[in-house]
């Protein structure tokens, strides 16, 4: 049995809204310890992962291992129909396995229930990078304000949706996007005085090409947190992470474009 309390605009809803146009199914695994959501975009170029420990989720109830495929559009449409003040609970029960119920309760105790089928998609689990992997395979990381990151992603995506480059040295971070009519460069210098807001940490310079469209989509989600951290590798996907709550986190991975 699973009961997942949701609020319009919370991280779970936010992630679902963000990936609505990228992916059809969110794979959700719930245990007594918490929730893990994984969604791969339909072109198989990006992954978003949301980790929510039970202690960060007020009212979270799960007494067994539950692995389900949630149709993102159905869920988002239902949440959009609800009122901001409604208490929303996502339920998967033993008696109605194969379906999901989304219950909305207004402050006046009026209720609306949505019931829809779970997606029978084969759950694909990936071994996503742990700290050891990040330390050994990623040559650099950059911490920056999420609002600033979103602004850059929007700017890059507006110029060119298909081809962007991130480069980092121990002195600066640069973004580049190639558009049809022009290019855009954005450069950030490492500030020596204040490294709490913007901090570059590199073992060696890294340059990687990527598709700006995906970063722009995920950047919206990262504004749920004040800061984002980018992990850059010469051989592995670009990873962007933000912390949610006490121990939760959202991560996205964008496949690098291979340059000659």
């Amino acid at each position: 049995m699973l009961e997942l309390p949701l609020v319009k605009g919370d991280p779970f809803h936010h992630v679902m809204e963000a990936i609505l146009d990228l992916s059809d199914v969110a794979h959700v695994v719930c245990t007594t310890r918490g929730l893990n959501l994984l969604a791969v975009d339909t072109k198989h170029l990006a992954i978003v992962s949301l980790l929510f420990p039970a202690e960060d989720f007020k009212g979270y109830t799960c007494d067994e291992y539950i692995s389900i495929g949630i149709p993102i559009r159905d869920l988002v449409n239902a949440i959009r129909c609800g009122d901001d003040k409604d208490t929303i609970t996502l339920k998967v029960g033993e008696e109605n396995f194969g379906t999901i119920t989304l219950s909305f309760v207004s402050p006046e105790k009026n209720t609306v229930d949505y019931e829809f089928r779970l997606v029978d998609a084969k759950l694909e689990r990936f071994r996503l990078p742990d700290r050891h992997f990040l330390r050994s395979k990623y040559q650099g990381s950059v911490k920056m304000p999420s609002v600033e990151f979103r602004r850059i992603c929007k700017c890059l995506s507006n110029f060119g949706d298909e081809y962007g480059v991130i480069s980092v040295t121990d002195e600066d971070l640069t973004y580049f996007a190639k558009g049809t009519d022009g290019d855009v460069y954005v450069e950030y210098k490492q500030q020596e005085e204040d490294t709490t807001i913007f901090k570059i940490d590199v073992r060696e310079p890294v340059r990687l090409a990527f598709n700006p469209k995906y970063l722009n989509t995920f950047a919206k989600v990262f504004t749920l947190s004040g800061q984002v951290k980018l992990f850059l590798s010469k051989t592995h996907p670009l990873m962007v992470e933000c912390k949610i709550g006490q121990k939760g986190r959202i991560r996205c991975f964008v496949a690098p474009k291979v340059e000659p």
């Binding site: 791969v40 198989h44 170029l45 689990r125 990936f126 081809y163 598709n211 996907p237 291979v258 000659p260």
Partner: peptide, 14 residues
Amino acid sequence: LRSQPTIKSFFKRV
């Protein structure tokens, strides 16, 4: 010039 490996090719399946 801009070939694109899939994201899945970078991760092992569990």
